[in-house]
Design a protein around this nucleic acid. Sequence first.
DNA 1: ATGCCATATCACATATGA
Length: 257
Amino acid sequence: MRIATYNINGIKARLPRLIEWLSETQPDVACLQEIKTSDETFPVKDIEDAGYGVIWHGQKGFNGVAILARGETPVEVRRGLDGEPEDEHSRYIEADVKGVRVASIYLPNGNPQPGPKFDYKLRWMKRLRDRAQQIWAEEVPAILAGDYNVIPRDKDVYSVKAMADDALMQPESRAAYRRILGDGWTDAILSKHPAGGVWTFWDYQMNAWPRDAGFRIDHLLLSPAAADRLIDAQVDKDFRGREKASDHAPTWVELAG
DNA sequence: ATGCCATATCACATATGA
């Protein structure tokens, strides 16, 4: 069973690419981020016509997450995180699908730092960890997948110097990510590619894609019951090079069974 | 400090992104 995460940077602009990716790679479950559309305007019919059931948590103009499942509709468990009722960003949706608990996560970018956006990022990461601990206590196979906007290690970025002041690799961002891993979650790409040099994002600017100047910010975190079934973890890098591509590439895990 | 590119919206200018 393959479970993927894909920040598509606008589902309307990316719809042909999304349908093509679903058709070519046939993921069993796909977590999307940055759908950038309201609940009312989500292209549910196009996705159903491609053979997928879907739940989504939209927002006009930016943010927005969804979970797709081949041949069935995910059973929603919750949308949004506790701890900050005034937070109206659509960044989290969670469902039970094909025997696995799956979350689609769009973690705040946090730039510029320092500042209120960075503070929001760190608060959001604490709220995510709180939810992850609740899921952990349920002892279900679980995958927390999405755009974490965190470069975990220096080996996960093309240039430490170029990104040194970016919110994505500040010590506080890394520490918050490490605390979640410290609770026992397995970073699937890290576990299969410990040497690093695996990118999931390439900026549209500064010729980043042709230079292969990327970094790793899209992550799949596995609970022990899911990690026990981990066969492979990869990036569909090819899709970053196509016409009208997202700046992220699809990233996925293959689980036994 | 800003633009570089891209997507979006009360669209020909501005917010957001990473």
